[in-house]
Simulated scan of single mutants.
Amino acid sequence: MSVRTITWETLLDVYADVGAPYFVEVLRVALARYPALLAKREMVFGANAEARWTGEEIVRQYQAGTLTHPWMGRRNGLAGAELREDITSGAWRTVRYECSSKGVDNRNWFAVAEFVARVQPAVAPGGG
């Protein structure tokens, strides 16, 4: 079964002469700027990461006193739904987190010590 696809470019072509001028202009500008905006987004994501370690590697290094990157990042930060789900499901052990040796002024970043405190029951002896 074939599925017809309508692209934003097609929409612009169809509405260029009949659509509301504001809508047509905003769509035209958005399509023109899309490659630059996409490149900027890709460049920004991960820009602060110096390393990427699993949660288990981070905790192991923290407990051993060998941690060289005491800051870590996760989408929406320490209080975000993503990290909460990682911890609840136990996936934090295998998820690779961005890590940095210096603090990052960004709501997605937090101290490893705070992460370890949240997962501590799961890493305590007999805790899993």
Score class of each variant (00 low, 15 high):
G128Y: 11
G65L: 03
A91E: 13
T10F: 11
F23K: 14
S2N: 08
E56S: 13
D86E: 03
P125W: 13
D105E: 15
R28F: 07
Y62I: 01
A51Y: 00
S101A: 15
R96G: 11
M1S: 07
E9Q: 14
K40W: 05
V18Y: 02
E114T: 05
Y22F: 11
V116K: 01
W71L: 02
A30H: 09
T94Y: 14
I87Q: 05
L12P: 01
D17T: 12
V119C: 05
L11S: 09
D86K: 01
G128Q: 12
L83H: 00
A51S: 01
W71T: 04
A49I: 12
G103T: 02
A16K: 15
A47L: 01
M43D: 04
N108S: 15
A36I: 03
R118Q: 13
W8G: 15
V95Y: 13
A91Y: 13
S100M: 05
G103C: 02
R4H: 09
L38D: 09
V59A: 11
R93M: 06
G128M: 11
A117K: 08
V29F: 05
V3N: 08
G73F: 02
G65I: 09
A49W: 09
R74N: 12
W8K: 15
A64M: 07
T94H: 14
W8N: 15
G126W: 07
A32R: 11
I6P: 00
A39P: 00
I58Y: 03
V123K: 09
E25W: 12
G128A: 14
N48W: 06
R4C: 09
V116C: 01
L83P: 00
P125L: 13
S101M: 11
A16D: 14
A113T: 13
